[in-house]
């Protein structure tokens, strides 16, 4: 159903820590790997060995610079579906293929209903929808629905592929509808934010901002410079060490 379900209490989503994301693309590739054989398989690649290789990816990692010169920051920025609470990508879908699950808020595409009109991808401000030109249907991040609920997997493995694989642990998964969940607490502590709130889609995913730099005097508690030695030592600094009692 394309109309949205009544707002649920469970809001599964991701929290991405831009302070430590090194832009390694592990999450993007592991996502591709998992999903290539998963719910939305395949994630077709066109012209894979040719002049214009391009394929379906549910997660793409951008790099930005913010600010000027040495004062600025380089920020690596993974982008995938934010599982919005007000996802127009769902409402615009003429067939009901695009839907938001009532029980956990995951936004999915039912490929069997999809006519490939691409409208939902126009309606997503974040570019989170990926059209599979070969299959003719829209695909997208499933929040690894076939992994997070997969009872054939070890309990600990029931997290999205991108989260499990992130080497720096910049990705967190959980229920953002529960203020007590670890992800909600993380968002609260670190000032996690929504992307483009002005669009009104109310994304569930949150991004944690880069922490302030520690590159000014006093930031580690150290003085701005070491004290200059006393006048006597200045003359022959070696003398300071001559009387030091040392043992081995």
């Amino acid at each position: 159903m394309t109309s949205l379900p009544p707002p649920g209490t469970r809001k599964l989503g991701l929290v991405i820590d831009l302070d430590i994301c090194v832009g390694c693309h592990a999450c993007a590739v592991n996502c591709k790997e998992w999903n290539s054989g998963g719910q939305m398989a395949p994630l077709t690649d066109l012209d894979p060995y040719g002049a214009h290789p391009h394929g379906v990816w549910f997660n793409r990692v951008h790099s930005f610079e913010a600010g000027e010169g040495g004062e600025g920051r380089t920020v690596h920025f993974p982008r995938s579906c934010l599982h919005c609470e007000q996802p127009a990508c769902v409402e615009v879908c003429p067939t009901g293929a695009s839907y938001k699950r009532a029980e956990d808020g995951i936004v999915l595409v039912n490929e069997d209903l999809c006519i490939g009109c691409k409208l939902c991808s126009w309606a997503c401000p974040y570019g989170a929808r990926e059209f599979d030109e070969d299959v003719g249907v829209m695909k997208k991040c499933t929040l690894c629905i076939d992994k997070i609920y997969n009872e054939t997997l070890d309990e600990r493995d029931r997290v999205p592929a991108c989260v499990a694989t992130c080497p720096v642990s910049a990705r967190h998964f959980g229920d953002l509808g529960d203020p007590g969940s670890s992800v909600s607490r993380l968002v609260a502590e670190r000032g996690g934010y929504e992307l483009m709130p002005e669009m009104g889609y109310k994304p569930v995913n949150r991004y944690l901002p880069p922490r302030p730099r520690k590159d000014s005097a006093g930031c580690t508690g150290a003085p701005a410079a070491l004290p200059t030695p006393t006048a006597g030592a200045e003359a022959n600094p070696l003398l300071r060490w001559i009387d030091r009692m040392l043992s081995r």
Partner: peptide, 15 residues
């Protein structure tokens, strides 16, 4: 606003 990084200054795509 798309990146939420405005507080750090002007945002430019690097890659």
């Amino acid at each position: 606003s798309a990146t939420g990084l405005g507080a750090l200054g002007r945002v430019r795509l690097l890659e």
